[in-house]
Design a binder for these strands. Sequence first.
DNA 1: TGCCAGGCCCTCTTTAGGGCCTT
Length: 205
Amino acid sequence: MIDFETTGLSPARGDRPTEIAAVLVAEGRIVDRYQSLMNAGLFVPPFIERLTGISTAMLRRAPPVEQVMAEVADFVGTVPLVAHNAAFDSKFWDAELSRLGRQRSQSFVCTLLLARRVLPRAPSYKLGALVDSFGLPAAEPAHRALADAEMASHLMLRLEQELIEQFQCAAVTHDLLRRIQRMPKSQLQTRLAGEGRGLPIRAEL
DNA sequence: TGCCAGGCCCTCTTTAGGGCCTT
């Protein structure tokens, strides 16, 4: 599970990471962690500083972005990647690796897309709201990379439990999660409701 | 000068619009 804090929403508009955390999950638990601030030489906008607590002064004392991204890419290796709203983290991940002349070799799973399918009537799909609704441990401080990555890891494990119940799968693999998150939401829910829970969907997957 | 992300997903839809989610 990876989580970025950044200067904004779009690397295409010049935004860069300010912090990253990578949490390694195996056999249903967190087994290793990487976390670091990083200095890309940018000014942190006031809104972002209020949101994350990460200031320009903090980044001036942080290691350079190139060093941190190389370290975290080595830490991650070829392990499948997960993020909450992976469309956001994957574009920063790819942009920063590209600057290093490296390329991602593995795919992303998105806990936001999975949650929309597993919990079709949830009032909110924000990371904190989903963690609260499941009664999962809320790591502090929120909107810092390591805390958010740990909360998202607990959310992913909880969603896997839900999928085992709904799809009656003996094991939840990265490839299975990829297929589920790409399945049209309306189609998935209609079939779950209309055909009973489990076997028809499992056979299709 | 003025504007500025982008993909998912619902609906008063599909020749579209707007809210959500990430920072």
